[in-house]
Amino acid sequence: MSEYITLSMILFTIGAVGVLVRRNAIIVFMCVELMLNATNLAFVSFSRQHGNLDGQLAAFFVMVVAAAEVVIGLAIIISIYRTRRTTSVDDASLLKS
């Protein structure tokens, strides 16, 4: 059982590190999706371990929310690209100055 969880953790960590090191907003977004998928895997695994379907249902909801989130996120990326001609997250460093 724990091998599924372990895989889930590895994928999650890889996704997180990807968020930290990649600068292309689309790839960063993909990494976020990877993290979500990793959690889904954990949900499904726990669902099997505990013998009920609640975990699977949670994973389903995650998918639905992820779909909505991707729509909005990509729309934002598109509109940023339209005005700034770039998808690098570093260029949008308006938090400073």
Partner: peptide, 14 residues
């Protein structure tokens, strides 16, 4: 640490 880069903040959060 306040670099203004989102990734820095994400690193701190992580």
């Amino acid at each position: 640490p306040q670099t203004g880069y989102v990734r820095s903040y994400a690193l701190m959060m992580f």
